[in-house]
Simulated assay, not measured.
Amino acid sequence: MFSPQGPSLRELCVQALSSVERGYDLLAPKFDHTPFRTPDSLLEATVQALESEGPFGRGLDVCCGTGAGLMTLQRLCRDGITGVDFSAGMLGQARAAYPEATFVRADVRALPFTGEFDLAATFGALGHFLPAERPALFEGVFRALRPGGVFAVPMGVLPPPTSVAHWTLTGFDLVMRVRNAVLRPPFVMYYRTTSLPAIEHDLTAAGFAVESIPLTSMGKYRDGDPRCWLTLARKR
């Protein structure tokens, strides 16, 4: 599906019936040939928005996957970059793409860092965490940053209810909830649980000073609302 190099429908079904970790281990070799990879346009928009905040020292990609976000950190951080993920398969792909980076296999709900980084970022991974799990994730990022450090979270906005995309994502969430109600282990991936206000609220509760800026280069919906925002959470 998606391209000749992408996963087949059967492979996607096997992934969806696995746990999150096992599913991404299976998908890793073909992940970059799917729409699930963060688009280069969003990565570039994030770099442009963060350039005025830097330069930064050390950078951390939270849930780095195959390493697309490391390209962003590499351009912004002068003292090295680290990727952390719990999928061995995804980390293997990232190591091949960025041999100069440091990689750590860990559950990001219990990040093993304290005061080591000046910039942290996560790209497209928050849907893999239930709302009740986000506080532990954000508190771990807060702990990993040095005072004054920044946690950057680029986020797409749910399309308006008048769009086909809105109901496609809503239907996806419904299917995943039904799947997780009847099958174990669960595969957590939801779109409607990661609204911008919810993320801002949880980051503030973790101790960050939070602001969100529109990524205007990513375009707007017909009602004029930006399609994407960059949330900047600063360690006080």
Rank of each mutant, 00 (worst) to 15 (best):
G69S: 08
I81M: 10
P35S: 02
G92M: 05
T72R: 09
D40G: 06
R75M: 11
L76D: 05
D40Q: 15
C77R: 10
L50I: 12
F31M: 08
G65H: 06
K30M: 01
A45R: 02
Q74E: 11
K30V: 06
V84I: 14
P39T: 06
T46F: 07
Q48C: 05
F86N: 15
R58S: 09
S41G: 00
F31A: 01
F86V: 09
P39S: 00
T34V: 01
G89P: 05
C63W: 08
T82C: 15
L50R: 11
Q93N: 07
F31C: 05
H33K: 02
C63H: 04
F31H: 12
H33C: 00
E44H: 08
L27I: 08
F31L: 13
G80N: 08
C77A: 12
S87C: 02
K30P: 01
E53H: 15
S41C: 09
T46D: 04
L60G: 10
T82N: 10
G65K: 09
P55G: 08
Q74Y: 02
V47A: 08
A45Y: 11
L70M: 15
Y24S: 02
G23C: 12
S41L: 05
L60Q: 11
M90Y: 10
L42I: 12
V47Y: 02
V47G: 00
L76Y: 07
S52G: 11
E51Q: 15
L60W: 11
D85F: 14
F36G: 00
D79G: 04
E44C: 00
G69V: 12
G57C: 07
G83D: 12
L91T: 08
T38V: 14
G54K: 13
R78H: 13
Q93D: 01
R37V: 06
V47S: 04
L76K: 11
C64Y: 07
G65L: 09
M71K: 14
G57E: 09
L42P: 02
D32F: 02
T66K: 10
L50H: 07
G89Y: 09
P35L: 01
V62C: 11
L26R: 15
L43E: 10
L76A: 10
R58E: 13
M90S: 04
G67F: 07
A68N: 14
S52Q: 15
G23E: 08
C77F: 07
L26N: 04
L26P: 00
S52M: 10
V47F: 03
P39D: 07
V84E: 09
L27G: 05
T66L: 05
S87A: 11
S41I: 08
L50T: 09
G59W: 03
F31I: 03
H33T: 00
G83Q: 04
F56Q: 10
L42T: 04
C64D: 06
L60K: 06
F86G: 03
A68P: 08
H33I: 01
I81G: 01
R75C: 02
F36L: 15
P39W: 06
F31W: 13
L70W: 09
T72V: 15
T46G: 02
R75A: 15
E51C: 03
G80S: 03
Y24H: 02
E44D: 14
V62W: 06
A45N: 01
G57Q: 04
G54T: 09
P55S: 13
A49G: 04
Q74H: 14
E51Y: 01
A45F: 05
L91A: 05
D32M: 04
L27M: 15
S52Y: 01
G23Q: 07
D79T: 00
H33A: 12
D85Q: 13
G92A: 14
